[in-house]
Design a protein around this nucleic acid. Structure first.
Lengths: 210, 210
DNA sequence: TAATCCCTCACTGAAAACAGTGATTTGACC
DNA sequence: GGTCAAATCACTGTTTTCAGTGAGGGATTA
């Protein structure tokens, strides 16, 4: 009997999954969580085999929750879940300790498959997902290796997105506007953007803001 | 017996809902659709009482599908469904002919409530949703009436976010750069932004892109 | 018919962003 | 002690954006 915890902030989805999993004889739902904190809390006091972890959750999201959970309860297997077939999402949660990933737009079969596979000790990635991951690695080698931003650059990026001008940013961060210009230039280079508009756009796409 | 059609592009959510509704004696699921076209198609050949209509769907979204469905099959009752407690979403789909709206983060009770209420001939809005709608009307009078963008403006907005300059946009859309400047100005005004960076940022926050 | 909205275009001047280059200081790491 | 990355600052142009204003044509609607 696999003991499953469902973590998703959409109660209706949770209700649906529960009713779906109850039909399965070798699975039982031992709890549900609406955010990362509740996941940790429940795993602290309940025996849980698998957490079905949605990525987008309030307060603490699925990525952060996976990080903390795999530290605190390494035996608990995490199955990442989201609606996005997005390379960053997938790799982020896998890095954070998840052992599988399924998309919400696949049917219940793949979910049951994933649960069984994880419970047996293996990892599970659906075809779509592994394709995305692979294409990501290919790209990484080829055209774009997404460079990391420094703390200061991230700070400047936030200011830019808020609509502040170079001068105002310098004022706010107590540095010269020339320095801000340099940071701005480096941001444009690192995010491969041609101007602020594309910069903010790419920052959103790479989840550097919000 | 209420005959329900589920329209949502996330198969897993559909599977969950189905399994949840099957338990109810006075409800039966007569079909499922992954986009607006399939909704129309199924309603053409099946007797459907209520469509549970997700708003975000590929090819044809829930809003457009509601519009067409309420023209073609006015007897079919539409229950709007989405994860966003967003004034525009709600009012859009209600205007398009839906008779109720529920959020995915509410439980199955409110869904069953909504189905029963719609079937009885009334309209259904959950507390959260009606609050949002009301606060929307209040705000409209007060501080900010978020103005809608025209098609052309949306097009220009996309180009701006892609990093194109005013001149390049004019080139791409076969209009003068002066015209693009005007659109840009109107966008800045409507989205209350001071420059392109804030424009793109606000556009993301208001879900006008992505 | 008048009013309104959208799309179109034009002109000006000021402000800001962008490109290119070079340089110093600080702290971490080997 | 040398290397390296990050953060700081400066200077010079060119390009782009932004603000303000005005205006005409077309479609819709009250």
């Amino acid at each position: 009997m696999t003991r499953v915890l469902i973590a998703d902030d959409h109660q209706m989805f949770v209700d649906g999954l529960k009713s779906l999993l109850i039909e399965e004889k070798e699975v039982c739902v031992v709890g549900e969580a609406k955010n990362g904190y509740e996941v940790i809390e429940i795993c602290d006091r309940e025996h849980v085999d698998i957490v079905i972890m949605d990525i987008n959750m309030p307060l603490m999201d699925g990525i952060q929750a996976s990080r903390e959970l795999s530290k605190k309860h390494p035996a608990v297997k995490i199955l990442g879940l989201s609606m996005y077939n997005d390379r960053d999402y997938i790799s982020d949660i896998l890095k954070a300790g998840a052992r599988g990933y399924v998309l919400k737009n696949t049917g219940k079969e793949s979910l049951l498959d994933a649960i069984a596979t994880l419970q047996s000790g293996s990892n599970y990635l659906s075809d779509d997902v592994s394709k995305t991951l692979l294409s990501g690695f290919m790209k990484k080698g080829a055209d774009q290796m997404m460079e990391k931003l420094s703390d200061r650059e991230r700070e400047v990026l936030d200011c830019i997105a808020s609509g502040l001008t170079t001068y105002e940013i310098g004022d706010k961060l107590f540095i010269s506007k020339n320095t801000v210009e340099t940071h701005r230039k480096n941001l444009l280079y690192k995010l491969k953007a041609r101007n602020t508009a594309e910069l903010v756009n790419n920052a959103y796409k790479q989840r550097l803001i919000q």
